[in-house]
Every structure is written in structure tokens, then in C-alpha cells.
Amino acid sequence: MTDTTARLALPLLQPGQAQKELFHDEALTLLDLAVQPVVEAVGLDTPPADPVPGQAWIVGTAPAGDWAGQPGALAGWTEGGWRFIAAIDGASVWSRADRCRARHDGGAWVVGEARVRHVSVGGVPVLGARAAAVSDPAGGATVDAEARGAVAGILAAMRAHGLIEGG
């Protein structure tokens, strides 16, 4: 029998255990930190001087002080001090400092990167996998410089946004 859960290492109650409420309260404290997590910032190595209970951070790669030995962990300040949850592949948090999501890719926290198969708006696909390059306009007996300039501008903008590959 294990003393903690498999994913978040939450403390489990044991048969005949004294002071079960302490273990139950610790599990609730860790759940409060882990469920729908919001962090103040990602990648800090030094704990803030005056944290408020309920605030959390993603610990950096070279932690010091009270965070020593907890690289990449989700660190939350509670009335009882710091609590840590080890990062797991696929974990996701909202970063207040970055105003976007950060997710753990199994090796590190990645801030602001969205990985999707396609994007739909109102059920209509608007963005999918990148298609093959569209060639720049060329040739023809009659050259329409304005039309070619417009098409070239559109293609340049689409390339700059990463919507199509370079030609």
C-alpha cells in the first residue's frame, strides 16, 4: 500500500491512522494548489519576500532558499508555509505575469505556446496544417504590375504570419 497518490503525491489516509484530519487537510491544501492553478510568474529561482496565502509560482531551474531542491515545481504559499507539487507532463497553469497559459512538456515549462491540430471559429475551420508553398506570380504576355504587387504583398504577409511556407 502506498502513502500517496500516484500523480500528485497527495497524502492518503491509512487504516488505524491517528490524526487523520492532518493528512486530510494536507491533501485538500495540495488540491487547492493543483486544481485550476494560477501562478504569479513562471521560472523564479528565489521565493518572494512577502507571499500571500493562496499565491503560487513555477520554480525556476536553479532554485535557492526555501525552494532549493524543487526545480520546475508548482510552489504555493499557505498559512503553514511552502507546499510543492512536482511538475508532470501535460500540467498547465495560467501565468498572471505572462497573461497566458504555461504547460509542462515533460522536460520544461513552455510559456505561451499553443499546440493544436486545427483552429475553428463557430465550427468553421479557419486554420489547419501548413500547406505547400504558393509560387510568386510570374510570366504572362501582359504584365499587370499593380496586381502582381498586390498578390506579392498578400503572399509576403501570409509568410510573415507563418500561414504558408516561403516560395
Rank of each mutant, 00 (worst) to 15 (best):
R148Q: 08
R7A: 07
G81I: 01
S135Y: 07
A56Q: 15
P15I: 05
R83D: 01
L10E: 09
A62F: 03
A129R: 09
R7P: 02
A114W: 13
S95D: 01
A34Y: 01
G43D: 07
V35I: 15
L30N: 13
L31W: 07
D89V: 05
W109G: 00
S135V: 00
V121L: 15
V59K: 12
G153D: 03
A152I: 01
A157W: 09
D3P: 01
G167R: 12
A49T: 11
V52D: 04
D32W: 07
R96C: 02
A108I: 06
A34W: 01
W67Y: 11
T4L: 09
P137Y: 00
G72H: 04
A87C: 03
P47E: 00
A133F: 07
W77A: 15
V134Q: 07
R115Y: 11
G122L: 08
E113L: 06
V121K: 15
V116I: 13
P15L: 12
P11M: 10
A91Q: 10
Q14Y: 08
A141E: 11
G76K: 12
D144K: 03
V110T: 10
A97M: 02
L28K: 11
A145V: 10
L8K: 05
D66Y: 11
L155D: 12
G43I: 02
A9L: 14
G166Y: 07
G153I: 00
G140P: 08
W82H: 01
L33A: 14
A56F: 01
G69E: 09
W82F: 05
P63V: 08
I85R: 14
G166F: 10
S92K: 14
Q55P: 02
Q55E: 09
V121D: 15
Q14R: 14
P125T: 11
G81R: 07
K20V: 03
P37V: 15
A34P: 01
V35D: 15
R159Q: 13
D136H: 05
G72D: 02
T142A: 02
V126K: 10
G128M: 15
A133V: 07
Q19V: 08
T5G: 15
H104S: 14
P51G: 00
F23R: 11
A56T: 09
V111C: 07
A141W: 10
D105T: 04
E146K: 08
V35N: 11
M1F: 05
H161E: 07
